[in-house]
Design a binder for these strands. Structure first.
Lengths: 223, 223
DNA sequence: GCATCCTGACTGACTGTTCAGTCTATAGAG
DNA sequence: CTCTATAGACTGAACAGTCAGTCAGGATGC
């Protein structure tokens, strides 16, 4: 029991540090994040951070993992509360294309860039990312399959769709995150939904209920 | 004339350093690139690099710019030598999805990730990237318009297509660059071409002449 | 008294940038 | 044609700051 309790606080501390690291990475970038910053953020000494993670790299890549992981978990949870295929697609798209609240952490766009950059040159990170992306494609495919089983659309190659759709979403995310004037969030949303609708043989029109989705995605992201 | 000659060697030195920096960034990453490395690569002292660029950051962002710029120039040039819309599309797609030779520099995938990461947090870089991306979309739109004018396809919203298509290409590039086992280069190529063909009302079948395109893109990239 | 959590003080390595001054070549003066 | 002044390219050496990681030991709970 004691060991249990200790382990709990131990894990809590760990998570605190991971969250703090993720926030800092999102703000300043991977290579600009110092362990002293993380330590300050959790009210501890730099030495303690090393005590928990051994090396800086272990902390930062852990933070990347942790953050993306909670993003996907949040996505899964949100999807559970949606009724129709159309709603579920809108959730998927708004999660990737619509800005979240500034102060929110996990899945923040900056982290994607840093994750990709790290994954490109570090095999362990690359492995994690591949796994994460497979999970994302599985989520998309699941949504489509559910739609098929519910009779909302005709049978369809859900996995193939997931590959293409996730690539399109990634590309749109980049434009939105980098504030490209040509691809604002609304346009990105419309492009993605139009593509999905046409591909799946679903009816979809851009409408002003986008805001509703946006708000819901925010709340879903709230801790 | 004398001043000219001097200025020429000056610019040559500058370009040398930019190329060296781009190569190193592609290999090691932006933040892992030291000015001492760049200096060594051009056979000069670190002080000289500073003498030319003032600061490390100025050198590295300059290298990013320079590299992407030559990538787009190479793309424009290659497109000029293609006869049909189908060929031109295949060039666009292979440039983004098919691995280039290892030792080749400009446009190397690692640089994209670093460019995005930097652009996310540094407004000047972000401005450059937006400009670069617009140029890419213009190139795509130009290819489509040429196809329309040549009567190869029906009139079509070329700019709208360019926005969606460039996002899809970016997304596929990520998967390929990060060696996702699900999205190998060939599959990425097929996905992109299938999308373009369907969207534009063009006939296209995956065939084994992809290798031809791949080789051409290599040669086109050669300095 | 043992294990775990935690810290302050320290260090060793790294690295961007500065600076004083060298070397080369050209331009202009005599 | 020679001598010298000037400018630009270039460097070695040192500086100054930064930071990840170490270490010896203190507190706390059991």
């Amino acid at each position: 029991m004691t060991a249990r309790a200790l382990e709990t606080t131990h894990d809590q501390r760990r998570d605190q540090m991971l969250v703090a690291a993720a926030e800092l990475i999102a703000q300043r970038g991977f290579s600009e994040t110092r362990i002293a910053d993380v330590a300050e953020r959790v009210g501890a000494s730099p030495a303690l951070v090393i005590y928990y993670f051994g090396t800086k790299d272990s902390l930062l890549t852990g933070a990347l993992r942790y953050s993306e992981d909670t993003f996907y978990s949040a996505a899964d949870e949100m999807l559970g509360s949606a009724a129709s295929l159309r709603e579920r697609l809108e959730i998927l798209v708004s999660l990737t294309c619509i800005p979240q609240r500034e102060d929110e952490v996990p899945g923040s766009w900056g982290l994607w860039f840093d994750l990709w950059t790290q994954a490109f040159r570090h095999p362990e990170v690359a492995r994690d990312r591949i796994e994460l992306d497979q999970r994302w494609r599985d989520t998309i495919a699941r949504v489509v399959k559910d739609g098929i089983e519910a009779g909302e659309i005709e049978p369809f190659d859900a996995e193939g769709f997931a590959v293409t759709f996730s690539a399109l979403l990634d590309g749109l995310t980049i434009q939105v995150a980098l504030r490209d004037p040509v691809v604002d969030p609304e346009r990105a949303f419309t492009i993605a939904m139009t593509f999905a609708a046409r591909e799946l043989g679903l009816e979809w029109q851009p409408s002003n209920d986008r805001k509703k989705i946006q708000n819901r995605s925010k709340n879903g992201q709230d801790r």
